[in-house]
């Protein structure tokens, strides 16, 4: 039995990712949980997240999820999704600056103008984010975009390079120089769509909403033993 824990810290919809794992997995038991013992007992751990980073980080710290995640990545594979990926970084520009977990070096930046306050809603004061033809791009970055694979990580197994995945976000990860991107996407700027570090694989897009390619990535994750 492959035990999968989806970390629940009260932020948004975790059912989609749990359902997608149940759909692709053979002989899997999925728990959506914040219980330390259940998470540490799992074979594979998923760290999702939606919504504003300040609220996410507040709940992550209040529930002790920060310590659990630190323990998880010492000995088993972790898949971080969307705001879960952003939470792993040093800090985010969102909500006037929020310190994150610092497990991967780098920061989380806003698409377009840095002068903003996301408390009043995503994109309400978007700067002029432009594509290569000078056309104005909408924020949030919402929809299916191309992910260029930059390594041969096992999570890309059987997924064609430049496949499209579903994104919905207004902030993106800018990796520290010593870190490794696994996938790059362009939206006005090239940004880190996927990264890996030891037992961590993190994606900005939503594999659970990315149909065949996303389901294949989840299937690959269930078969990945991590790097230790």
């Amino acid at each position: 039995m492959n035990k999968v824990a989806v970390i629940d810290y009260g932020m948004g919809n975790l059912h989609s990712v749990a359902k997608a794992v149940e759909y692709v997995g053979q002989n899997v038991a999925v728990s959506v949980t914040s219980d330390a013992r259940t998470i540490l007992d799992a074979d594979h751990v998923i760290f999702p997240g939606v919504g504003a980073i300040r609220d996410c980080m507040g709940e992550i710290r209040r529930l002790g999820i920060d310590e659990i995640v630190a323990e998880v990545i010492r000995n088993k594979p972790l898949l971080a999704v969307c705001v879960g990926m952003q939470a792993l970084m040093d800090s985010s520009e969102e909500n006037n600056g929020v310190a994150c977990l610092g497990m991967v070096s780098g920061r989380v930046r806003y698409f377009g103008n840095a002068q903003h306050d996301s408390d009043k809603g995503a994109g309400s004061r978007a700067g002029e984010l432009l594509d290569v033809d000078g056309k104005r791009l909408k924020v949030p970055h919402m929809g299916w975009n191309i992910v260029k694979q930059t390594d041969k990580h096992p999570l890309w197994s059987d997924i064609e390079d430049n496949s499209r995945f579903y994104f919905v976000h207004s902030y993106y990860v800018e990796l520290g120089a010593q870190e490794k991107a696994s996938g790059i996407t362009e939206y006005g700027v090239p940004f880190t769509a996927a990264l890996n570090k030891g037992n961590i694989f993190a994606v900005q897009f939503h594999p659970e909403k990315s149909q065949h390619s996303g389901l294949q990535l989840l299937r690959n994750f269930l078969g990945w033993d991590g790097c230790v």
């Binding site: 948004g12 919809n13 939606v50 919504g51 504003a52 408390d119 809603g121 995503a122 994109g123 949030p140 919402m142 919905v168 976000h169 207004s170």
Partner: peptide, 12 residues
């Protein structure tokens, strides 16, 4: 709409 976006995030 404001309450909903604050609680659940603008993305939804």
């Amino acid at each position: 709409v404001r309450e909903a976006a604050e609680r659940f995030g603008s993305q939804c």
